[in-house]
């Protein structure tokens, strides 16, 4: 390579450094770096059998054939879990038997969870006690609230990291209710 080409090529140095750095940093805007994508999406939901808050037992097998939502929450998760609580309750009321909701206590005591429900309203769907944190590990939960949307075929279709709003709920529900059709 001649000296002349070298002299010209040196100008490439500027865009070579500036463009990739600018592009990389620019793509970071508008994302929550704490959000973790889930390898579970598109895969079968983990199977489980756990005690419920009202003293019974619930298993993933009981839910087969219907779409369901698994919501990891805790009484100490304030204000996020309080904020999304009415969203979950209203979906439960609207969808009724068509869609099952399951709350999972994330590192929380049964007594505290009951106090939370007494205070903010118990919509009536079951809550299971995940004392060993096994289910949270199976689902790969980072922290409450985190919600997984499972279709009638038992496949995880979507997840929500952080509190649900009505708009987000409608959006996420689309993924499992549409798939539930015959």
């Amino acid at each position: 390579m001649s000296r002349v080409t070298l002299r010209r090529i040196r100008w490439l140095l500027v865009p070579l450094l500036v463009v990739p750095l600018g592009w990389l940093l620019f793509t970071g805007f508008g994302r929550d770096p704490r959000e973790v994508s889930s390898p579970l999406i598109g895969a079968p939901a983990p199977e489980w059998t756990l005690p419920t808050l009202d003293g019974g037992t619930l298993s993933s097998a009981d839910l087969a054939g219907r779409p369901y939502i698994v919501n990891f929450w805790a009484s100490w998760c304030i204000p996020a879990c309080v904020d999304e609580h009415p969203v979950l309750a209203s979906v439960h009321e609207r969808q009724g038997e068509e869609l099952q909701l399951v709350g999972v206590l994330y590192q929380d005591s049964a007594a505290d969870a009951e106090a939370f429900l007494a205070r903010y309203g118990d919509a009536g769907y079951p809550h299971v006690i995940d004392d060993a944190g096994r289910l949270a590990i199976d689902f790969g939960v980072t922290g409450p609230p985190e919600t997984f949307f499972v279709d009638a075929g038992g496949i995880v279709r979507d997840k929500q990291f952080g509190p649900l709003t009505d708009a987000l709920m409608a959006d996420r529900l689309g993924a499992i209710l549409a798939a539930a059709g015959p």
Binding site: W11, V14, V18, L21, L25
Partner: peptide, 25 residues
């Protein structure tokens, strides 16, 4: 302020590098 800082970084880096390359000889 993120986009503002990004613009400042690119201007500072791009400008200073251009100057440096210019003066390399």
């Amino acid at each position: 302020i993120g986009p503002w800082f990004l613009a400042a970084i690119l201007i500072a880096l791009g400008g200073a590098l251009t100057l440096l390359v210019w003066r390399l000889p």
